[in-house]
Design a protein around this nucleic acid. Structure first.
Lengths: 230, 230
DNA sequence: CGCTCTATTGATAAACCTCAAATACAGTGG
DNA sequence: CCACTGTATTTGAGGTTTATCAATAGAGCG
């Protein structure tokens, strides 16, 4: 297993708690409450108030927003070591996003007072959190920019590359994107429809850039995708 | 002058420095360096490294990203009391955004070490900054969502309402958006072209929802726009 | 082996962009 | 006060991209 290209999307757990000792880290984790989440299950929902901030310790979450017309947009995927719903700790109230597991997942949740206490005890924590959140802004700004300027195939290419950088495992034939990823999922992540994704993937499969099975995508020619995305 | 609808887009200067006394605030401002910016002038550019974090004290900035094909996307407008380029203080390096004044503007800039010092001296500052940045994330996530799910007229309507909430001044005939706003500007803020904006505005003008002159837009029926945007 | 969920593909339509040309407007200098 | 110039705006025609709908094929599971 080898990461490909640069890591642009997230910090790992070690970055948020990087100044802490193992013992300190463990005690912090014990302050929170562990939650086991079966595959395809909601952790929180966009209409309901969220009272905790979560760190994924195993598995993966998908953050989405659902429109009134039933269209779903995937904001981002959250892997192990990453945080979500940090907003609620600082601002409280409703976080207008839905989080669901895409596989067997485990998270640790801290409530607002605990998190505030921690930030007082470890002053670096607020800075690290700030760092993390700023990285997230740059990412979503970039994607906003792309959805405004690029056309669908380019955006699909970028989505594939983003996911490859995030959770890509190298094997004989290329880089496998290691999450269950249907045409529908990729469409929601690229801001298009499953039909367009399907057509585009067919074209690329003929060119030998990707290989795909049911909910599985392997990128066989990353470089071609990169140059295609410009 | 009266603000219309809820204020969703930004915190004011008082929110970031809210715990500080006037004297403390003044000393902080004096630590930074004042910069005068004539209208339509760049403060920083997306390719160049930015070494300071800026607070607008007078006037307004426009943050944009420019694609290789020459297409411009407006990320957001920054008014007096608001911060920009906070990223550079925490992470340093290049901030992939261009900032230009849209009118006579004045900003205060602080470099990284100064800002870090301030955050040590006033621990609440990091939290307030976090608060601000999280608000920004929610905003851009919402706009990403909208550009993925809604069609152009709805997005134009939302852009107008957003700008109205941000800098709208009420007069006899409606709410004037108090920045020089051409069709082109609005297109860049809505993720479309000036032609589509022009057509849409013509339609709405006939319906009596808006009235517009050269680079000036007055919303005469905000409610109609709100319901149109759903 | 049948059931369910996912993927493919064609036909069609709608939304939107692009290009071109005309018109309106504001500011400037005579 | 008026013509002139540069920019902003409007509008039409035509084309491209992409969504939508419908029907079929394939994959995995019990």
């Amino acid at each position: 297993m080898k990461k490909v290209l640069s890591e642009i999307d997230q910090l790992t757990k070690s970055d948020i708690f990087k100044e802490l000792t193992e013992d300190q880290y463990d005690s912090i984790v014990h302050l929170g409450n562990k939650i086991q989440i079966p595959p395809k299950t909601f952790l929180f929902h966009q209409e309901a108030p969220v009272s905790q901030c979560y760190m994924v310790t195993k598995g993966k979450l998908k953050l989405t927003k659902l429109s009134e017309h039933g269209k779903t947009v995937t904001i981002r995927y959250v892997g192990s070591g990453e945080l979500t719903a940090a907003v609620t700790v600082i601002k409280g109230g409703v976080y207008p996003v839905t989080a669901a597991s895409i596989e067997e997942t485990e998270v640790v949740g801290w409530d607002q007072t605990t998190m505030m206490e921690l930030m007082n005890r470890f002053p670096g924590l607020a800075i690290n959190l700030l760092h993390l959140v700023l990285t997230r802004i740059e990412d979503i700004q970039q994607r906003y920019f792309e959805v405004c300027t690029e056309q669908v195939d380019q955006r699909i290419a970028r989505s594939l590359l983003r996911l490859m950088n995030w959770k890509g495992t190298k094997n004989e034939s290329g880089v496998l994107i290691d999450i269950p990823l249907s045409r529908q999922n990729l469409a929601e992540y690229s801001g298009t429809t499953l039909y367009t994704v399907s057509r585009t993937m067919s074209t690329w499969e003929k060119k030998g850039w990707v290989r795909s099975g049911r909910e599985k995508i392997t990128i066989t020619n990353p470089h071609a995708l990169v140059t295609f995305a410009q």
